[in-house]
Amino acid sequence: MARETVPVQIQSVPAPRIASRRWPPSADRIASVLLIAPSVLAIAVFVYGFIAFTGFASLTKWNTLRPDFTFIGLANYARLFSTVRFQIDLHNTVTFTILFLVLCLSLGFGLAVLLDRGVRGEGIFRSIFLFPLALSFIVTGVVWRWLLNPGSVELGSTGVNQLFDRAGLGFLKSGWYTDPGIGIKAVVVAATWQLSGYVMAMYLAGLRGIPEELREAALVDGASEVQIYRHIIVPLLHPITLGAIIILGHISLKIFDLVVAMTGPGPGFSSDVPAFFMFDTTFRGNYFAQGAGIAVILLIMVAVLIIPYLVFNLRTETQR
């Protein structure tokens, strides 16, 4: 589970009584600043300072264990974008993100609707759908590596393929992550397994928050169940969908552990991702500058996704 799987809903805080601008400030005021100072300092150095350093490193010639800070401008980036492996990585990231979002959202929404309609054993179902979230991507990767290990024509099928064989569904067999045409899509299966339950839980909470009267009123007006979902419920759930897209989207941009444990870069880099390339080139190849470049590109992709959302959230809070 990623640390970031918490939807950012920022609770509005009532405005302070009077903005105290007395000088000298009271002892409590000083104390309040002192109390958060260590955290602020830590984030300033370990997040913003480090990012600045990484940004700087990406503009240098640092390609040995010991730093070499000769400034070479954007050369690393130019080179990176012309590297076949990086092009494949970006392509994989897009494929992964789209598939992962579509699968998680549709599966999560579908299951939430079914559970919301009131079924026996709801608690059990909910727990089953949600528990993969408690696991580490490493555990998920190890298990799914064996499940999606295709076996071979010569020695026999293994994993899921073997299950298909036994069920007489042999045509469903596939090479999974060993097939360069599938590659990263096999990782999507494992990632969806792990995180779709989380989307289900978010939607379920959202559905439970919709007043029953709204549905009743619509029913009285002669709306069908499908119409109610389309015109009332789904629009009401938009904020949740948006939140889920943001959370899942930024996880998929950063995906690393799962790829490490499950597939590695795969045949022809078909399951390689930028985060893995960064680790590989920086710490194995000693291309610190290039690794820093990849990190900066990752950061920009995440920032494009996250910052508008954060700003939007904080704005609406102050407006309230």
């Binding site: 997040v47 480090f50 950063k254 996250i306 910052i307």
Partner: peptide, 20 residues
Amino acid sequence: LFALLLFGMFIPYQSILIPL
């Protein structure tokens, strides 16, 4: 300040590993 703190939650940690 809070918003700036919050952003730290989302950064790809790759972007801080080298100096870390």
